[in-house]
Amino acid sequence: MMHKAINHYQQVGAASASFASPHRLIEMLLDGGIDRLAQARGAVQRGDRPTKLKLIGKAFDIIGGLRGGLDLEKGGEVARNLDELYDYMQRRLVSANARDDVEVIDEVTLLLGEIRDAWKAIPQEARDNPAAVAAKES
């Protein structure tokens, strides 16, 4: 699954992804999605349809990479909730693309930003050894 996420990120121009920790890779994907959406917003405002299509497509793929990296069995309710949220964001991007709707792009950007902020708030101990932290909590 992680290789799939690396491939998605490399497709949007981050060759350093192959050297990143799994935690950092997710952070990079979230940042990349937010960046592409900001660029797509600008393209919509400029009326640059080809660029908008390309950038919304890249954001869609990044969210797909995040979604594909979820372990729905081990991740339990959190993973299922993220899966549903990522699905919602992808559907909203289809709508934003069809209607040139910057408000929808802003909504998805906000959601990705909230996930990114929560991801960055994970303590270093949990980043370094998630299995040990999970064992302590059970």
Rank of each mutant, 00 (worst) to 15 (best):
K58Q: 14
A59W: 04
D87K: 15
A98Y: 07
D100I: 02
P50E: 01
E103R: 08
L55D: 00
A96D: 04
D71Q: 07
L70D: 04
E77Q: 11
D101M: 03
A59E: 03
A96N: 01
G68E: 10
A96Y: 02
Q90R: 15
L72F: 05
K54S: 13
I62M: 09
R92Y: 05
P50F: 00
I62K: 02
A98L: 15
E103Y: 01
A98E: 12
D87H: 14
Q90C: 07
R91P: 07
E103K: 07
R67K: 15
F60C: 05
G47T: 02
V78A: 13
K74F: 04
D101V: 01
R91Y: 12
K54T: 12
R80H: 14
E77M: 08
G69K: 02
D101I: 02
L93H: 02
R91D: 14
G57S: 03
R80N: 13
Y88Q: 09
R67L: 13
L66M: 10
I63R: 01
A79C: 10
D87T: 14
E73K: 11
L53Q: 11
V94L: 15
K74D: 12
P50W: 01
K58Y: 08
E84R: 15
G65C: 11
R80M: 15
I62R: 01
R92V: 09
G65N: 08
E84S: 14
G65F: 08
L85Q: 10
K54E: 15
A59M: 04
E84H: 12
G75S: 01
G57K: 01
I63V: 13
G75R: 01
R99D: 13
D100W: 05
M89P: 05
A98Q: 07
Y88L: 15
V94P: 05
L66K: 07
G68P: 07
P50M: 00
V78I: 15
I56W: 00
A59V: 04
A98N: 10
R67W: 11
E84P: 07
M89S: 08
S95M: 12
L85V: 12
N97D: 14
I56R: 00
N97I: 06
R49H: 09
R49K: 12
V78W: 06
I56T: 03
R91V: 12
D100Y: 09
G57F: 01
E73I: 09
Q90H: 03
L55M: 01
D87E: 14
K54I: 11
E103S: 11
I63Y: 02
E77K: 09
G65P: 12
D83W: 10
N97S: 14
L82P: 11
A98M: 13
E103W: 03
Q90W: 04
T51N: 09
I56G: 00
D48E: 08
G69H: 06
L66R: 05
G69V: 08
D71L: 06
Y86D: 08
V78G: 03
